[in-house]
């Protein structure tokens, strides 16, 4: 095993362990901060896939945006409300059975799909040009989002505009509301 593989498995393990701890941890603030570890090591895995733009975008959007928003929501919420949250009981109950069943069936579908697919034989993987380490991927991303994916790009911008206007409308001091 060379150094690169070692680092890859280190980050993969970090993603899994921290994600598990985020779910099971009782302390809400710590679990949000642990979520940062998950997202950041996921960005590291993107770097290994030579998707550096996605990796940096992941850090900007999730760490700089979503995570700070979650913390704000947490800190601005009522303290009484947080105290009234019951700690998760670890005993098994009958109504957990449905959840366990759904999780296991999803796991089964995923695993069976991965086993069935022959990744190296897929047409779109064979025909695609491989990305090299020094490639300037942002040029390609820019070109594609302005030509081939122009419609989704514009729809997204309209959607974000709607969200912005909606947020401004909710936040303003209205006479009617």
């Amino acid at each position: 095993m060379n150094a690169e593989q070692l680092i890859f498995y280190f980050f993969a393990a970090l993603v899994l362990i921290s994600a598990l701890m985020v779910v099971t941890m009782q302390n809400l603030v710590r679990s949000i901060f642990l979520f940062f570890v998950t997202l950041f090591s996921l960005a590291a895995l993107y770097v290994f896939a030579l998707a550096d733009f996605i990796a940096v975008t992941q850090v900007v959007i999730y760490v700089g945006g979503v995570l700070v928003l979650m913390l704000f929501a947490f800190m601005l919420s009522n303290k009484e409300l947080l105290n009234s949250l019951e700690p998760i009981k670890r005993t098994f109950k009958l109504n957990h059975l449905a959840g366990i069943f759904i999780c296991l069936s999803f796991l089964f579908i995923l695993v069976s799909l991965i086993v069935q697919i022959d990744f190296s034989g897929l047409d779109w993987i064979k025909s695609a040009a491989p990305i090299l380490e020094g490639d300037n991927t942002i040029h390609a991303i820019g070109m594609h989002s302005m030509t081939r994916y122009l419609l989704p790009f514009e729809v997204l911008s309209v959607f974000l505009m709607m969200a912005l206007i909606g947020a401004a409308h909710l936040a303003r001091k209205g006479k009617k509301i």
Binding site: D52, V56, V60, V68
Partner: peptide
Amino acid sequence: SLNLGLFYIFAILSIETLGILMAGW
């Protein structure tokens, strides 16, 4: 010498806000 140099710096600096929130809390 990153192709994404400026974007990278901008992303990395946004982590500082997280550290400040961490210190405050």
